[in-house]
Simulated assay, not measured.
Amino acid sequence: MIPKINGLGRSFAGVAAYCLHDAPTPDDRSPETSERVAWTDTRNLATLRVERAAWLMAATAKAAPDLKRLAGGTPRGRKLAKPVLHYSLSWARDETPDRQEMSRAVDGSLEALGLEGHEALIVAHEDTRHPHVHVIANRVDPETGKAATLGNSKLLLSRWAESYEREQGRIRCEERVRNNERRRAGREVVRPTWERPRHWARVRREGMQPGRARRARGPVDEGWVDIEIWRRAEAQSWEEVKDGRMQEFSRLESRARKEWAELLKRQEDMRQRLDRESRTVLGRLRIWRIERSLRELAGAVRGREDLVEGWREDLDRYNKGERAALGKAHADSARRIERKARDAYRRGLRDAEQQARITVQDLVQRAAWEMKERGPSMTRVPVRPPRPRGPERGGGGFER
Rank of each mutant, 00 (worst) to 15 (best):
R187E: 13
E206H: 01
T193M: 15
R204L: 12
A213N: 02
R198T: 10
R198F: 09
A185T: 01
R182I: 01
E181R: 10
V189Y: 06
R182D: 09
P210I: 08
R212T: 06
E188R: 10
R212E: 08
P197T: 11
P210L: 10
W194M: 11
W200L: 13
R183D: 01
V190H: 01
T193G: 12
H199M: 07
R191P: 02
M208H: 05
E188S: 08
R184M: 11
M208C: 05
R198D: 09
P197Y: 12
R205S: 13
R184P: 01
R212C: 00
G207F: 02
R212Q: 08
P197H: 13
G186W: 02
W200E: 13
P210Q: 09
G186N: 07
E181D: 15
R182W: 04
N180R: 12
G186C: 04
V203S: 12
R191C: 05
R205H: 07
W200V: 13
P192A: 14
V189R: 10
R187Q: 10
R191I: 06
G186D: 08
R205I: 00
E195S: 15
W200M: 15
H199E: 12
R182V: 00
P197G: 07
P192C: 13
N180Y: 02
A185D: 11
A201L: 14
R198S: 10
E195G: 03
R204I: 06
V189N: 13
R202L: 12
E188F: 01
A185V: 03
A185R: 11
A213M: 09
W194Y: 05
R205N: 12
G211W: 09
G207W: 03
P210C: 08
T193E: 14
A185N: 10
R196S: 13
R202P: 00
M208V: 10
R198C: 08
W200T: 11
R214P: 00
H199A: 12
N180D: 10
R196G: 04
E206T: 15
V190Y: 02
A201N: 06
G211P: 04
W194D: 15
R202A: 14
R202F: 11
V189L: 08
R214Q: 04
V203N: 02
R191Y: 05
G211K: 10
R202E: 14
W194P: 01
E188T: 13
R183I: 14
